[in-house]
Design a protein around this nucleic acid. Sequence first.
DNA 1: GATGAATGAGGGTTCATTCAT
DNA 2: CATGAATGAACCCTCATTCAT
Lengths: 188, 188, 188, 188
Amino acid sequence: MESKECLLSIAAEEFAEKGYFKATISTIVKRAGFTQPTFYLYFTSKEHIYSELVQSFQEKLEQLTVDSRLEPELNTDSLPERITKSLSAILQFFADHPHLTKIGFYESEEATNIKQSMVDQIRENLIFEQQNNYFSGQLNMELVAQVLVGAIERLTITKLFSNEATAVGLAKEIVDFFLYGMVPRETK
Amino acid sequence: MESKECLLSIAAEEFAEKGYFKATISTIVKRAGFTQPTFYLYFTSKEHIYSELVQSFQEKLEQLTVDSRLEPELNTDSLPERITKSLSAILQFFADHPHLTKIGFYESEEATNIKQSMVDQIRENLIFEQQNNYFSGQLNMELVAQVLVGAIERLTITKLFSNEATAVGLAKEIVDFFLYGMVPRETK
Amino acid sequence: MESKECLLSIAAEEFAEKGYFKATISTIVKRAGFTQPTFYLYFTSKEHIYSELVQSFQEKLEQLTVDSRLEPELNTDSLPERITKSLSAILQFFADHPHLTKIGFYESEEATNIKQSMVDQIRENLIFEQQNNYFSGQLNMELVAQVLVGAIERLTITKLFSNEATAVGLAKEIVDFFLYGMVPRETK
Amino acid sequence: MESKECLLSIAAEEFAEKGYFKATISTIVKRAGFTQPTFYLYFTSKEHIYSELVQSFQEKLEQLTVDSRLEPELNTDSLPERITKSLSAILQFFADHPHLTKIGFYESEEATNIKQSMVDQIRENLIFEQQNNYFSGQLNMELVAQVLVGAIERLTITKLFSNEATAVGLAKEIVDFFLYGMVPRETK
DNA sequence: GATGAATGAGGGTTCATTCAT
DNA sequence: CATGAATGAACCCTCATTCAT
């Protein structure tokens, strides 16, 4: 089974760097030290291995949001701290798996759906907290969630993949900005 | 010269719907009522017509940000109003040219650069206003600009292209959120 | 009718430089300052204009050998001198019309036939002189004629077209070599 | 590797008969019993296989001239006999490989260079013998070499390829003519 | 578990040539 | 006399995919 892992890993690199169409099976197997028929021992088609990578990304990403929901009860952190931790975990995952992220979050046709799932999840979480009067009651949480995902998308590719920022640092900055906005508070 | 416009328009549609690689010259010319050689009367290659579309998008987008800078002096609007109008103009342009936007802002390899240009422009504008003490002095304007572009990206594709929101409405919501954030002001 | 001459002349250049297949009607007319349909006002096809150039070469070449036959009676030159003059005239013609020569004598499919015609003509002339006991009676004049044409072919392209030699100088050298060969005469 | 040889051989035929441009990959593979992609398993392009054929011709030709130089010392033949043998070997090679010869010596763009290489080689050999006072000291050996190559060119295509003469017979005739020229010796 | 050898299907591109004006 | 606009016909080449071994 090691051959399959090897192919998956190299395919991820190729797809991430060149995109689905410019990446070729021929190059992938050559880099893996195999010949073309070997590829079809493990995957039924080019599309299939790509899907497998996308799905792998999707599953890990979902696991992450599931995990972030397990703790709430026994968590003594404040809400902003908890949000920051969740966001940080996502960003860290992206930073740790740049190829998979490039494919699943940017290139693939599924990217739009994956982002929308993320939006849905985040929105529901926010609405829940909104009912606890933590956030302004008039806030459109669908919008907030969309903006947050947009922020993640941009900042991952510009700051995280270039190593200009860390997951934790970025998460803090984002949350701070989202909470208080641009206009300074008068009380301060 | 009408044939060229026709080809450009249909090509934009094809590229937007199918992406660069799945779109074929063959289909484009067929839909335009021509044969293949006609295509090469007006464009030197598939890559070329794609570039032309991307560039066209880029130029119009830049024109928009240039225009939004001409008025400031003779403008009696408040800053938030002015920002909203600029943002609204961009969103309106995206809504009016969905194919071009799909290509230049989402699909093309240049998309990343185009977004970064937008970020740079916005950041500089924000820094200028920051010096006028309108915004919190500690704000990282690069981050804000990135988030704004991320927001535009997401909301254009989910709300604008699906006609779930108008450019103006969206612009207002975005600006409102960016200015005041999620935590309600005590003074209110 | 000047347009036709212009096209012929430029076509000769293009065909000579690039060969029949790499030369394009498109380039020829462009260089002549015309558009493509104009070409078909004067020539029925690409093949046709090429044939016309080949034929033009062939006719001029034949005229030359005809001319060289008119004088004999009233000519007081010795045979070697007469041969040298004929050869010189041919070489001079080639030097004066390099494009036409390149096409008709080297590139075209007719080149082989044209050379064979030349061989036939020369052979007959030589046989005639042979009967006058000027040349060795055992000499195979077909061979001599072939060698002479081969010599012309090589020396035209290497010495004449590069201006390393003149038609007259070359003719003298060739004739001298053909008459006496490589082994020095004992009587000398 | 048999497929490659097969393709090379058929390609040689096609190129020899039709020339580079009129020959098509499509016909070559069809005649070989393959489909088009198979061609690209063994050659990177049409140009490439053509070069391979030209180079193959060039190498074999050079080998021939190298071989003809190895023997001199232990050779009891007279100079004319040795020259005849070398020439004969070349002509035999041409007769044995008409397709390759057609391509490398007549059609290809390299033909001019290949002939010039031959001229250079022959010239140097002749100059060496000239210093041994075998040949007239005033002879321009560059000219002689050019004429010899011209003779080979013409006679190969007219006498050898048509089977009107054998390599050996032709070589003898050529050498005899080159040595003694056209004017009969007085001593006879 | 792996491969050498081959192909089906299709895409981009070029060029001589024509028709209506 | 000349052209703007268009095309028919090919050709080279690529790539995912398969089959027999």
